[in-house]
């Protein structure tokens, strides 16, 4: 085996593998919003309430996939296709059926960029707290990371006012600076560019692209085909909880345009 083949093989190191990944919500959960509703329903139809099979909503339907080192995968699909649910399953927030193997790789996922943990505390204190949740493995570096994040955000004296008093743009500045601080083996970014003003967006785009470059693999959810084209080398197109396309971005985007305009929310009640 020559060096080119060696390099290609090491570059294709498996980061994550999903086999028969299914995700189901039980619609019964939404039937009773209060204890009173539940008691009333139990009184009306006790056997039916207790024994009836509840409606199931199949969000992800038997997915099989592999994510390799170097993959920058854009996930496309209309609203309700299952993009965010898939990302949350991979990030370990949701418990899916089937197997998701990570082979010991660190996964970092970001789903919101205008969020503080304690709105009463200052931006700096919130950033310090978020570091503990986003980067627990870099505990010894937190002090340096915090300084770098604060400098990058350019919030200066605003860093020491309560987070609840920040505008959406300021919140996005701080969060984006924080989430783009360190690369990961698998980075999941779910519509994370929203919120920042256009001047900061240019700056953060460069930083996020650098982060993507240094991360093992990236899953990128966006409705912006320009961003997908700019960042990704592979696209998954999700429809009704299934990956119906896995291939080059150009073809995936073409399919997105062709199918997207005729496709509403998937009807997946069983």
């Amino acid at each position: 085996m020559n060096s080119t083949q060696d390099s290609k093989k090491s570059n294709q190191k498996l980061i994550l593998r999903g086999r028969n990944v299914n995700f189901v919500f039980f619609a019964k959960t939404y039937k009773f919003v209060t204890v009173r509703d539940m008691i009333a329903e139990l009184a009306r139809d006790p056997m039916g309430t207790l024994l009836n099979e509840s409606d199931r909503v199949h969000i992800l339907n038997d997915l099989n996939f592999e994510i390799n080192n170097g993959d920058r995968i854009g996930i496309l699909g209309v609203n309700g296709a299952g993009k965010t649910t898939l990302c949350r399953c991979l990030a370990g927030l949701y418990k899916s059926r089937g197997t998701i193997e990570t082979f010991g790789h660190k996964i970092r996922a970001v789903f919101d960029t205008s969020m503080g943990i304690q709105p009463e505390l200052t931006g700096r204190e919130n950033a310090n707290l978020l570091l503990k949740f986003m980067y627990p493995e870099f505990y010894s570096e937190h002090a340096n990371m915090l300084q770098e994040i604060c400098d990058f955000s350019e919030l200066k004296e605003f860093l020491d006012i309560p987070f609840k008093d920040y505008s959406n743009g300021m919140q996005a500045r701080l969060c984006l600076s924080l989430i783009s601080s360190k690369p990961a083996d698998l980075l999941i970014l779910d519509e994370v560019f929203d919120g920042a003003d256009q001047f900061f967006r240019k700056k953060i785009s460069i930083r996020v692209q650098d982060l993507i470059k240094h991360s093992g693999a990236v899953l990128f959810v966006s409705h912006s085909v320009d961003q997908i084209l700019q960042i990704c080398n592979r696209v998954w197109y999700l429809k009704d909880g299934q990956i119906i396309f896995d291939g080059p971005p150009e073809k995936g985007i073409q399919l997105y345009h062709e199918l997207g305009q005729h496709q509403g929310l998937g009807h997946r009640f069983e």
């Binding site: 927030l93 970001v110 789903f111």
Partner: peptide
């Protein structure tokens, strides 16, 4: 929102 946004 916090629980759905960050790995907490």
């Amino acid at each position: 929102r916090l629980l759905k946004s960050f790995p907490i």
